[in-house]
Design a protein around this nucleic acid. Sequence first.
DNA 1: CTTGGTTCCTGCGTGC
DNA 2: TGCACGCAGGAACCAA
Length: 274
Amino acid sequence: MPELPEVETVRRTLEPKILKRRILDTEVHYPRLLQNCTESELVSYLQSRRFVKLDRRGKYLIAVLDSGSRLVLHLRMTGRLTALPSGLPLEKHTSLQIHMDGDLELRLVDQRKFATLHLLHESGYGAIKGLATMGVEPLDSGFTPEYLKAQLEGRTASVKSVILDQRRIGGLGNIYADESLYRAGIFPGKPGGSLTFDEIQRLHTSIRAVIREGIRFRGTTFRDYVDGDGKSGGFQERLQVYGKEGETCRGCGRPIARIKLAGRSSYYCAYCQV
DNA sequence: CTTGGTTCCTGCGTGC
DNA sequence: TGCACGCAGGAACCAA
C-alpha cells in the first residue's frame, strides 16, 4: 500500500530516469484507469512530449510535461510504477506503458485496478477532489502539535480514522498510522477529541519520525510495493505492530492485537497503548 | 458539518 | 484436492 514514504521513494527513483526523454508511444491496457480523458486523447497528447518534473503531493504523483500539463497518478493499494529497460515481458495486470527514447519504459502494473490517472491541462487541482482538499503533510512546516490538536478537537471518531483522513493529514495510510500510534502509546480506537495535549505532542512527534524513517528506509514492502527501479523497500524490517497480530510486543512481551476501525485492520498492543 | 457503510477489483486464506 | 466464499484496502460517494 503506497503511502507517503513509498510514493516519495518512487518519485525519487523515477525522476532522474524519466526527465528529458521523449515519449515515443503510449499503450493503455486498462482504460478505466483514465479518469478524465479517453485513451486516444492520452496517447495523442503524450506523443513526442517530455516530462520536466516529477512531484508528489500526499500519495499523488504529479508528472509535469513540457507543455505545462500534468499527469496525476494515484497508486491506491497495489499500483506499481517503474521505469525499466523496454521490452521486458508484460506482467499480468499491466495497466499502462509509456515507451520513451533511450530504451526506457514507464510502466504501471496494478493488480486490483484501483489506481487512477488524470490528465490536467489547467492550473490547480480542482478536477481532483482528493488533491484539492489535501491536508497538511507530516513533514510540512505547518504540521505542528497545534495543527494536530485542531484536527482532533471535538472528534468522536477514533484517533486513527482522524489521522487517516487525507483532508486533515496528507499522505498517512494504514501502516504508518498504526506504527505512529504504537510509538506514541495511544490506543487507535480512542476518540480523537479525548486526547490530552501531551498525547497529541507524542503523536505529532511519532508521526513525523515514522514518516521520516519510512522514507529513509525506502518504504515498506508488505506485499506489492516496489520503487521506480522495481526494488523492494526496507521499512518492513522496522515495523513494530503492523501485520503482527499474535506476535510479541517489543515493549512488554504481550501479544499484538488486531481490531477493525473504520473498516481497516488496526494492529496495536493492548498493554502499551491506552 | 460529521460519521459510518458501500463500492471498486483480484488473489489469497479458510473451511467444508 | 477442489471449490465457494469472505476478506483486504484508499478514497469517492451516499445516507443519516
